[in-house]
Amino acid sequence: MGKFLLLVLLSFFQSEKHDFHTSITNAEYNPRTKSMEIAMKLFTDDLELTIKNKHQLILNLNSTNELPEADSLIYNYVIHNFAIQSGKKSVSPTFVGKEIENGITFIYLEIHSFPVAKELLVRNTVFFDTFDDQSNIVNIKLDGELESAFLKKGQETELVQF
């Protein structure tokens, strides 16, 4: 049942118009580089609306008129709304880049020298300031084990245990 729900949810991401507000973040620990590699999947129109509401700027993502500071605005927004904390140590991710495809913006982040722990505190409030029905799914893969957090207003953080 869980795989079916995930497939249905992922199929919704293939449409530019949507009546729901959900993001999916995948984080995977890379033991070779000792870093947490993070990919966020966001609706581009939701991202543009949020930045417009916050800064009164139009990003024009994936166009010839894209705002030169778009990456910086997106990165600053994301790091203020997303964190994975290992133990008592919270480390800000580095912005690796973004890709835009079919109305979806993929944001790539990395946390270097990530301190591995069996409990991770996940916070994801992306778009909570824009949509009352926003939910964020965070999938974390550590040592081949996959755990997920489902976050929404009123439940902005979750302790993920491996």
Rank of each mutant, 00 (worst) to 15 (best):
K34S: 14
S63T: 15
L49D: 12
G87S: 04
A117Y: 11
H112A: 15
G87E: 08
L49P: 00
N53T: 11
F127L: 08
Q155M: 04
V78S: 04
T125A: 11
A117I: 02
L146E: 15
K52W: 11
Y75S: 09
D132E: 15
K41D: 01
I38L: 01
F82R: 04
A149S: 00
L61F: 02
L146F: 13
M36D: 06
G154D: 02
L59P: 02
V91F: 14
K34I: 04
I58N: 13
S148R: 01
L49M: 12
L61T: 05
I51R: 01
L57T: 07
G144C: 03
N81R: 05
H55G: 08
V138N: 00
K118H: 14
L120S: 06
V96R: 11
I38T: 02
K89R: 13
L47R: 04
F131H: 06
L61V: 01
I100T: 12
L120D: 07
S35M: 05
V96L: 12
N102Q: 09
V96I: 10
K34P: 04
Q85K: 14
N136E: 00
I111A: 05
A39E: 11
A83H: 13
Y108T: 15
T44L: 11
P68S: 05
V122Y: 03
I58E: 13
N62R: 06
D143N: 15
N60D: 12
Q134Y: 03
K141N: 10
L59C: 03
Y75M: 05
K118N: 15
Q56E: 11
E110V: 12
I137W: 00
H112T: 15
G103P: 07
R123E: 12
Q56K: 11
E110S: 09
A39Q: 13
L151E: 00
P93V: 03
K118S: 15
P93C: 01
E145N: 13
N102M: 06
M36W: 06
E101C: 13
Y75R: 07
A83L: 09
E69R: 10
Y108L: 14
I137A: 00
P115Q: 13
N53G: 11
D132N: 15
K88T: 14
K52F: 14
A149D: 00
L151A: 00
A83W: 10
L57D: 04
P68Y: 03
E66S: 11
D46R: 00
T94P: 04
F127Y: 05
N76D: 13
E145Q: 15
